[in-house]
Amino acid sequence: MVDLKTILLVEDNPNDVELTLEALLEYNLANHVIAVGDGVEAMEYLRYEDKFKNRKKGNPAVLLLDIKMPRMDGIEVLEAIRKDDKLKTIPVVMLTSSREEPDLKKCYELGVNAYVVKPVNFNDFIEAVKQIGIFWALLNEIPPGD
């Protein structure tokens, strides 16, 4: 069995969290998902701060980031990660409700690895999330040193 790495899901909407996990269930990927509610928590997780002080070491295999979130939004998280030498190699996939040109542009400028619009149709949504999970958590070779 491949040693699966964690998927960090940053999503403020519990429904979306549930649906995303549902989608990842099929490949047993759901067990490796850590879901946090906003950007601040995501950064705490990544930097072993606060309640994540004692979490298991290691960067997640991929970060699934919603854009619109309270406190610190997805784009800010992306920016913070890319500026942090310890975190900047983590693959980041934006998983967001709509395709807004300025958001898309900004994300790619910041070096996002993928930008995925959550389809309204649930089957499509499941399919999309599954593909992301398979690709980033199973197939992608993570950068050395993690």
Binding site: N15, D16, L19, E22, K68, S97, S98, E100, V120, N121
Partner: peptide, 21 residues
């Protein structure tokens, strides 16, 4: 419209999702 695109779409997706579930 930014809000609409994000916030109106999300509940719809949820409705769809849960109906499918």
């Amino acid at each position: 419209s930014y809000s609409v695109s994000h916030d109106l779409r999300a509940p719809l997706r949820h409705i769809n999702g849960y109906v499918d579930l």
